[in-house]
């Protein structure tokens, strides 16, 4: 029968016993690792939520074109023809001022105000979908449209969303940087924990060698210890992020309702959660391996 599996099971049990043998130390290590990992994990969660908000708010980038209020109806017809023949315009939809007025009247609270106005305050407008929706191309098209006669204002509707998205990409890089730094911290924590473990088990290690233990046999429980510490730290981090999400959920929902934004705070995705746990375990393993190489020596 192969001795491989029982030996691993044994090493796993030994590591588990050592983790449980000093609950206070284990708990402190777990908290340290958990908090260290919760920061980038929580950051990732927030950035993802914000990205989703940005994308939902601006499904397709479009340009709004407003005519001058005093422009004649023929001017709008002229612009419509020009837009339809413009090579950079995919679709142009005309929104007559009367339609806008009718739509605004249906709005709660606005109806009375509009009713009181002597004349229609809204201009004719066009919604333009560009062929090329890259920011530079859209900027160029908008500049071009501004030169058309009778046009009062040209607005890139998706501008703020794109800026937000760009900002969030910086945020994502920040999260990655934070994850790298705190990952190094996690390795340092496991490194030191394993160092202390090796020191307190000097006698056992020395004796095991004298009784014919291979290097692998001696390393195994420590390696498992590192992996388990990392993994449990990952679970702690996940719990911290989940608790924060739950805690922030209600106030954010209320805030979103006030601004009529359809938004709920989503917890870490299954993929991100899995990634978090894998990274935590790998970092624990790395810290343990480096520590063993340093402290177990070659004899």
């Amino acid at each position: 029968m192969s001795v491989w599996l029982p030996q691993h099971v044994d090493a796993f049990r030994t590591a588990m016993r050592r983790l449980l043998a000093s609950p206070v130390n284990t708990l402190l290590s777990l908290l340290a690792i958990g908090v260290a990992l919760a920061l980038p994990a929580g950051g990732q969660m927030l950035v993802n939520n914000a990205l989703q908000l940005a994308r939902n708010s601006a499904p397709t980038p479009q340009i709004s074109l407003f005519m001058k209020l005093d422009a004649a109806g023929s001017a709008s017809e002229d612009i419509e023809t020009r837009l339809q023949h413009h090579p950079d315009v995919k679709v142009a939809r005309f929104i007559p001022r009367e339609e806008t007025l009718a739509r605004m009247k249906t709005r709660e609270g606005l109806a009375d105000v509009i009713e009181a106005l002597p004349k229609n305050p809204f201009p004719d407008a066009f919604v333009v979908l560009p062929v090329d929706d890259r920011p530079e191309a859209m900027e160029r098209l908008a500049d071009d449209l501004r030169t058309l006669p009778g046009v009062a204002q040209v607005q890139l509707d998706s501008d703020w969303a794109r800026r937000l998205e760009a900002l969030l990409k910086i945020g994502r890089t920040g999260v990655l940087l934070l994850a790298l730094l705190l990952g190094v911290g996690l390795v340092a924590i496991t490194f030191n924990t394993i160092r202390l473990q090796v020191m307190t088990r000097r006698a056992e290690i020395e004796l095991s060698r004298l009784l014919g233990a291979t290097d692998a046999f001696i390393r195994r429980p420590f390696t498992y210890f590192g992996i388990m510490l990392g993994l449990a730290g990952g679970v702690t981090a996940w719990l911290i992020v989940a608790a924060a999400t739950w805690w922030l959920g209600a106030p954010i929902a209320e805030f979103a309702k006030l601004y009529s934004i359809d938004f709920t705070l989503h917890p870490l995705s299954a993929l991100d959660s899995t990634l978090l746990l894998i990274v935590a375990a790998v970092l624990g393993w790395l810290g343990a391996s480096l520590s063993l190489r340093q402290h177990l020596g070659d004899n």
Partner: peptide, 18 residues
Amino acid sequence: IPYLRRNLGVVFQDQKLL
């Protein structure tokens, strides 16, 4: 070396009990 030692029984001077 580990495999050589597994074929030996050694009673150490300081016993080395855990």
